[in-house]
Design a protein around this nucleic acid. Structure first.
Lengths: 156, 156
DNA sequence: CGGAATAGTTATGCCTGATAACTATTAAGA
DNA sequence: TCTTAATAGTTATCAGGCATAACTATTCCG
């Protein structure tokens, strides 16, 4: 006579059928996995998702201002300050003065910044290839297309 | 002779082609939109995403423990305490003692909790139908299937 | 010129998420 | 049985992400 398994080594399976009705739930769970993996990928470069994103945008858009960068990253200006501070202190970017507008900074990557960019982007692509290895190209394309459609539903 | 538009009313379009290479980037942007909309949807019920998720799981799994709930929500036990506290103070759930294990609580929804659950779930379904109106059923199914596949790539 | 708007900054607070350390209770092994 | 390990829940604490208000310096505009 087997005694009931009270040990919670393998806890009872929880029913999340209601939550599974929601696409947002699936998006959150999936994104958590991607973000956790990306965080690990960026750790050797001492970059977080936000500092990485900012570095990429500065390298690809030399001379952009902090306001433009904040808007591109969909974060508020005050929150960008600390990010730019960190990149500047690490000498990955510089804040150059704009001659025609002494309020604004022109953000530009240094050589070290561009080198870190190359390494981090390469590692990130490898990370995504690994994580999405089981998903066909056509499916990936449809996924991206659908995600962009959702993004553009924005109810601002 | 049109003068160059220096006004940043419509800021220069920033090039994010590199970031667009990453599925995770598209996921984050899309999820931000969904989350913002859901937050607005839940606001009239005084629920946040986490309190809402916890309430749904407790209603659907009466008697589950805080440890099980934390695991189902993929958060640490200490962070769940405040969530359960809030739901309990609002008398949406109760912490019942488990006779066979005096360490654990059996979480159960009250009638008020179940009623709020009904309203919030109904509103959430309407929110998703509105947000995903432009996406065909077949596409939604494929989206969910792909997201679940990504979630299961988890590199724990 | 003078008020409005903009760029950047500082201070501050809320929410999410993680860890360490603790109490109470239960399980497990000598 | 007795000791030790493990578990459930809690507290304290910290870091990160994100938002707003208020401020300075500068530029725009009527």
């Amino acid at each position: 006579m087997a005694k009931p398994d009270k040990s919670n080594v393998l806890p009872v399976k929880i029913n999340d059928d209601t939550l599974r009705l929601f696409i947002g739930y699936h998006m959150k769970r999936a994104f958590n996995v991607v973000q956790a993996d990306l965080t690990q990928t960026l750790k050797p470069f001492d970059l977080r998702m936000l500092t990485y994103t900012a570095l990429v945008l500065i390298v690809d858009n030399p001379g952009l201002s902090q306001s433009q960068l904040a808007q591109a990253m969909s974060i508020e200006r005050p929150n960008l300050v600390v990010i730019v501070d960190e990149l500047e202190h690490r000498e990955l970017i510089v804040r150059e003065r704009v001659p025609t507008d002494r309020r604004a900074y022109a953000l530009k990557a240094t050589l070290a910044g561009r080198r870190l960019y190359e390494k981090a982007v390469t590692a990130s692509i490898a990370h995504e290839n690994r994580l999405f290895a089981g998903i066909h190209d056509a499916t990936r394309a449809m996924l991206v297309e659908t995600l962009d459609k959702i993004r553009n539903q924005e109810t601002t």
